[in-house]
Every structure is written in structure tokens, then in C-alpha cells.
Simulated scan of single mutants.
Amino acid sequence: MKSQWECFLQNLGVWEGSFTNFSPQGTLLNDTPSRLSLEGLNNNQTVRLTLSRPERDDMIREFSSVGGGLLFFEKGSFSEGLIQLGPFSEFGAELAFVHENCRLRLVQLFDQTGNLSKLTLIREHLAGTQTAERPPFQINDLLGEWQGQAVTIYRDLRTDTYSTTLKLQLDDPGRLIQSTSFGGRTITSTATIKGSIILFDQDPQKQVQVLLLPDGASATSPLKVQLRQPLFLEVGWLIQPNLRQRMIRSYNEKGEWVSLTLVTEEKV
């Protein structure tokens, strides 16, 4: 098992791409080119991050350790965000995948009233490599049965590994029926589909939205985060038509961040 620092080092390199901002309804607001360098110094004892975007000062950070609200998986995928949901404060997290020469990162932000306020999709590839543009993401790309393996890392770095099954189908009226199975449990829920928005609206007090975004990305989040209720943020990436990854950042009813899960699943 790699240390968290060794997992972080999987991200070293120069990453070229863009930051694309979306409204909570999935409307594209703006798109900004980016270049992010992660450079190992002192025999990789320190990592210097330099983010360059047009018409902005470079952002520079140096790391000699990782922790706090940041956790990594073996191949470099990670999530960083707040460890506590608080009253009258902004809330959010970044969930990020690393696959071969590409990274896909997504930031979900909520305002001081708890409402989903902005999404930023960051698509990057290693400088000097090619990347293929994926076709527009449609609900039909997700339909069917997906079988996978999940790894959950807890705050104290304990890990669990288990199998998962995800079944997605449409009923006659056109609602989405989702069944998720893991650890001997099966959870079934239904959603309304409107364009690129999938809305799980069975409980008006706990509506959860999935936004289908460019390049096979999807963002799952409550429309409103509420105190004293458990919640999760999820990002998916359809890497190939039959290969998908999902990352889930989970919070308990006290608003405390408790775990991070990475699911790698294939369509059967």
C-alpha cells in the first residue's frame, strides 16, 4: 500500500487544459485555458504547484505533506474539500480522477444559504500528449448494468474494498430507475430526466441532482446542503463507453467528512 505522499506524486507533471464554469442548471458560463505544473523538489520531498491562467497572477503552493481535507488513491485520483459543514458558511469540494495521460477534476460549491451555486469542470492532459474529445454525454450512455470494485478510505486511513453493482433503466413514463448494490444492501431510487439534468425528487426535502457535463463527466449533489442531515458529493467520469469511475465524498449527520470512495466499474 502506497503512502498518501506516494499517491500524491502520481500527479507530477505539467498539465494543460481548461477551467469551465457551469451554473447549477448546467449552463456553460465561461471557459479559461490553464497550465498547471506539479514539480518535485529536493528528491520529491517537496512538491511545488504552479497554476497559470490568462489575465491572472500565477497561483503557487508548496507541499511537504498532505492531509486535512485531502485524500489520495493509489493511482493519484484524489479529493480535497472542507472537513466540516457549518452554518452560514460556504461549502464545497473538488473530486479528481487520474487516468493515463489525463485528469478530470470537478469542483462543487454551495453558497452561505446552502444552495448549490457553481460547478467548475477542469479537464487536463500531460503537456506533449494527445487527448481525444469525447462525444456529448447522454443518458443512454449510462443505461444498463455496471459491475465494479470500490475502495473506501476513511479519515484515519483505514480502507475497505468491496464489489458493487449499478443498474440504470427507464420505465414506461420515461423516469430513471436506479438500483445500487454493495455490501449486501440494495438501494433503489427514481429520477426525472430533463435534458442533461437527472433529478432524484422522491423526497422534496432531499432532492439530489445529477448533471451530465462535457467529456463524460457527471456531477451529483444535493440542490441544498442542510445541517443535521448526512450528505454526499459524487463525480463520475465515463472514460470509455464501457468503463466508468465514480468518486463519492461522504459526510455524516453532524456535517463531518467521514470517507472517500472510488468506484471503478464496467458495463456488462
Rank of each mutant, 00 (worst) to 15 (best):
Q4P: 07
Q4W: 07
L9D: 04
G13N: 09
F19L: 12
P33Y: 08
S34R: 07
L36K: 12
L41W: 08
L41Q: 15
Q45R: 11
S52A: 09
P54A: 03
V66H: 04
G67D: 09
G69Q: 05
L70M: 15
L71E: 10
F73K: 02
F73Y: 11
E74V: 01
E80N: 04
L85V: 05
E90L: 03
E94N: 09
R103H: 06
L104K: 13
Q108K: 12
L109Q: 12
T113P: 00
L116K: 09
I122S: 02
R123N: 08
H125I: 04
G128M: 07
N140V: 00
D141H: 15
L142A: 12
Q147S: 11
V151M: 12
T161F: 01
Y162A: 08
S163F: 08
S163L: 15
T164K: 10
F182S: 14
I187D: 13
S189F: 02
S189Q: 12
T190F: 00
A191M: 10
T192F: 03
F200R: 08
P204N: 14
Q205K: 14
K206R: 15
Q209D: 01
L211G: 05
A219D: 01
Q229F: 06
E234S: 12
L243P: 03
L243H: 15
R244N: 05
Q245N: 05
Q245T: 07
K267G: 02
